[in-house]
């Protein structure tokens, strides 16, 4: 695949860069909102923070796109990697919590769970480079 091999020198670094920036947008916005729900800085009007959500969606768009590209490049290694499933399940859970929090009054338990699942997603994502066959994938 053109991403895995370096005949296009900048493809892999650029995809990685977009994936990292997307990560900061998704998890960054979620952290701020969840921390507010947990009671850090209650003077912040919660509904106003919703104006940050478009950034989160932009991040999610960037990461689904680049994530799919990375997946196509090494699909067989990904599907046999337990860390990949940890990452995907954590993201699904975190997104489900996000929608649950928007529907009714956000609870502290959901906010804490949201932080927990996003951190698990990061841990899973990093572990993908070290667990299973994909260990050879990352040049890092």
């Amino acid at each position: 695949m053109w991403i895995g091999l370096s005949d296009s020198f900048f493809a892999y670094p650029l995809i990685l860069l977009v994936h990292t920036v997307g990560l900061t947008l998704i998890v960054g916005v979620n952290l701020v909102v969840s921390l507010r729900v947990l009671g850090v800085s209650p003077e912040m009007p919660l509904d106003e923070l919703e104006q940050l959500f478009p950034l989160m969606w932009a991040g999610l768009f960037m990461n689904v796109l680049t994530g799919v590209l990375l997946f196509i490049a090494k699909a067989t290694q990904f599907v046999s990697n337990p860390a990949f499933y940890l990452k995907m399940i954590s993201i699904a859970a975190a997104l489900a919590i996000f929608f649950a929090m928007r529907r009714r009054t956000p609870s502290r338990i959901l906010a804490a769970a949201s932080i927990g699942f996003w951190l698990l997603a990061i841990i899973g994502g990093r572990a993908m480079a070290y667990v299973g066959e994909a260990a050879q994938f990352s040049s890092l």
Binding site: G28, V29, L49, L119
Partner: peptide, 21 residues
């Protein structure tokens, strides 16, 4: 090394999330 990388990513999200807002 692996744990430090993970911490580095988590720290980055915390740092950028707050400063973004």
């Amino acid at each position: 090394w692996q744990a430090s990388e993970t911490v580095h990513f988590i720290g980055m999200c915390l740092l950028i999330g707050v400063l973004l807002a």
